[in-house]
């Protein structure tokens, strides 16, 4: 039971990092990306490769993952500078589909469909962290760091600039803001921090494959943000906790037909999200809309 709880804490922390970093661009800059799982995956593959071939130290493999994701995110930033709203969603969808193909085919780096096996546990100052309980400390610590960093940024002039761009790009430019530069920086930061979730995921499970980094995951992360509350600090974490705990809650009720749990879960998600958007479009944590 204890191991089960720790496992859940780890998964919630990892998905919270993904949701917090997506919320950073979605909730503040108004950049709706369906490619967030790409950076999750890139972080996982890069840290795995570095851990196996260079060093499993957290100070080597994790930063390498961030740098790789930050660099590749420039491909996403490029369309983000040119187009808005639904056009950008389409562009990010393209990047997501393209990346899954690359992850499936580039066997030397990703192990293809089979994935990467025997990823060494992460080394933190000489300690190999792999037990769920120990790892929970690490994953929660990384989550706290990500939340502190993004919150500090959002509350600074950088965050105000992001919100100004979201509300009126032309007015932001008219007040001297370099809109493409600010958007690019926000996308790079978001992707770089999302890669941390990937690195945690890889060193925690010691096995990864492309199935974890598909469009389904990107949609799940977006759902977590929307359900929790777009543009809030706590929303993405609340959303991640609810969406990851819900399956176990459902299977806890023994009178439910256990073979139908999967579809039951989908029905609850779908219904819950629809009702939420009707009655609380700001999400569970979000404030009610203005007039």
């Amino acid at each position: 039971m204890e191991a089960y709880i720790y496992n859940l804490v780890n998964l919630i922390a990892i998905y919270s990092i993904l949701a917090v970093t997506l919320n950073f661009i979605m909730g503040y800059a108004g950049i709706y990306s369906l490619a967030h799982a790409v950076f999750f995956g890139l972080g996982a593959y890069t840290s795995s490769w570095v851990a196996q071939n260079v060093s499993p130290s957290i100070f080597v493999s994790y930063p390498a993952a961030m740098v790789a994701a930050g660099a590749v995110s420039l491909f996403l930033a490029l369309p983000a500078l040119r187009v808005r709203g639904e056009y950008f969603v389409a562009a990010s969808l393209g990047l997501q589909v393209l990346s899954v193909t690359i992850y499936s085919e580039w066997k030397g780096f990703t192990g293809g469909i089979g994935g990467v096996l025997a990823i060494p546990p992460v080394d933190v100052l000489g300690w190999e962290v792999f037990r769920p309980g120990q790892f929970a400390i690490l994953s929660v610590a990384v989550l706290v760091l990500v939340v502190l960093l993004t919150t500090a940024l959002v509350r600074s002039s950088f965050g105000r600039n992001l919100r100004a761009i979201r509300d009126s790009e032309s007015a932001a430019a008219s007040f001297g803001k370099n809109v493409p530069m600010i958007k690019t920086i926000s996308v790079v930061i978001s992707a770089g921090l999302a890669a941390l979730a990937g690195a945690l995921y890889a060193s925690y499970l010691s096995f990864i494959n492309v199935e974890s980094f598909t469009l389904d995951t990107s949609v799940l992360i977006m759902a977590i943000v929307i359900i929790g509350g777009t543009g809030t600090v706590a929303g993405p974490i609340v959303g991640a906790a609810i969406l990851l705990i819900l399956p176990s809650v459902i299977s806890y009720f023994e009178f439910l037909p256990q073979t139908e749990i999967g579809s039951l879960q989908q029905i609850i998600y779908g219904l819950g999200m629809t009702l939420l958007m009707i009655f609380r479009p700001g999400g569970l944590v979000g404030r009610r809309p203005g007039r």
């Binding site: 940024l153 600074s156 002039s157 950088f158 105000r160 600039n161 919100r163 100004a164 979201r166 509300d167 009126s168 032309s170 007015a171 932001a172 008219s174 007040f175 001297g176 803001k177 370099n178 530069m181 600010i182 920086i185 543009g231």
Partner: peptide
């Protein structure tokens, strides 16, 4: 007008003076 609608009055005015990309 093109106000920054999601921001407070104070933030709107403050942000008009903030040019730099990074804080």
């Amino acid at each position: 007008l093109r106000l920054f609608d999601g921001m407070t009055v104070w933030e709107n005015v403050l942000n008009a003076t903030e040019y730099g990309a990074l804080p």
